[in-house]
Design a protein around this nucleic acid. Structure first.
Lengths: 170, 170
DNA sequence: GTGTAGGTAGAGAGATCATTCTACATCGTC
DNA sequence: GACGATGTAGAATGATCTCTCTACCTACAC
């Protein structure tokens, strides 16, 4: 149920992956322990459900209704990521955080890779670049990690890089 | 004692911050529990000691003996970070990982900020840019997070961005 | 109104973990 | 050769956590 995933996402995003106990997660999900375990039969699956929800929300927030002109599209993406950081999280990428908290988990790695692959592909396509070009991913990752340290200045720097890349690539 | 910090760094780097128990950390540090607690009186301080060690090693490996020409310096830094990723860690930045694992910890945040501030300052200086310029930090962060996903292609993309930045800024 | 599917509340089992404590060993210095 | 500082090995403590289980409730189909 999506109410559960939403609550889980909120809990992990604000308190990290280590701290919240399953009882905390139950409260955040707004259901009983029994129902929580029915949909996500272990704590590890609660993490996966939260990230699945995150993935969808992120893609919608960042990539929907982009301008058609490739010159503007990447700028818009970077602005939106700045806003996302501001409202949704104050420290880095939740997928990287989940993997960092439990680096041995294979399903978690797979989810991270799927998420980033989709982000990279969409960003490159919107910017009119080859989908194999890694540069947009580097800019986006850089912005996401630098934002907690520099705030809006990171957005500006990312945009400058995107602009420089475009004028050099042309 | 530095043998302890080194062992702790190795343990957290390879197994993450959540998994290793204090007994595992004792084995990695190569001392008794009592001695371990003498130098680092809580598990949280073991994390801090590991990161302190990491910080010094990283600065040395990445920033020592850089070429004097600003055009080459940033390229060298990015190549060295690629090598660092290859030999030292397979997933992202250990400081971000530590904060992600325990986002409420103030000392951890402070350490992350100190580390990144020093990296940003040194990179900007070596590249002949203003030390307030956020672009080098964005590139470095982007490379560090994209490397686990794209390997050497991330190094190449980071270098292209650095080059584009330089030719646009000039 | 009875049966069934699916919910809540919450106690309990069983394991694990961080931290402390006890008992003993080593070694350089006087 | 005895002392004191510092180390090791590992048991004991007390808290906490995940996951399961029991007991009860609600709503609806027939």
């Amino acid at each position: 149920m999506s109410k559960i995933s939403e609550g889980l996402e909120r809990a992990f995003a604000s308190r990290g992956f280590a701290e919240p106990s399953v009882e905390d997660l139950r409260d955040a999900a707004g259901v009983s322990l029994r129902t929580l375990y029915k949909y996500t039969p272990s704590r590890a699956e609660m993490v996966l459900a939260a990230l699945e929800n995150r993935h969808q929300r992120y893609l919608t927030r960042v990539f929907d209704n982009l301008p058609n002109e490739p010159e503007k599209a990447l700028d818009t993406i970077l602005s939106r990521i700045g806003k996302w950081m501001e409202t949704e999280t104050s420290h880095g990428c939740l997928f990287h955080a989940a993997v960092a908290a439990d680096p041995r988990s294979q399903p978690l790695r797979a989810l991270l890779e799927r998420h980033k692959a989709e982000v990279a592909t969409r960003a490159a396509a919107a910017a009119g670049l080859s989908s194999a070009d890694t540069a947009p991913l580097v800019i986006i990752e850089g912005l996401t990690q630098a934002w907690p340290l520099r705030g809006e200045a990171a957005v500006d720097a990312a945009k400058r890089l995107a602009h420089a890349l475009r004028s050099l690539g042309a």
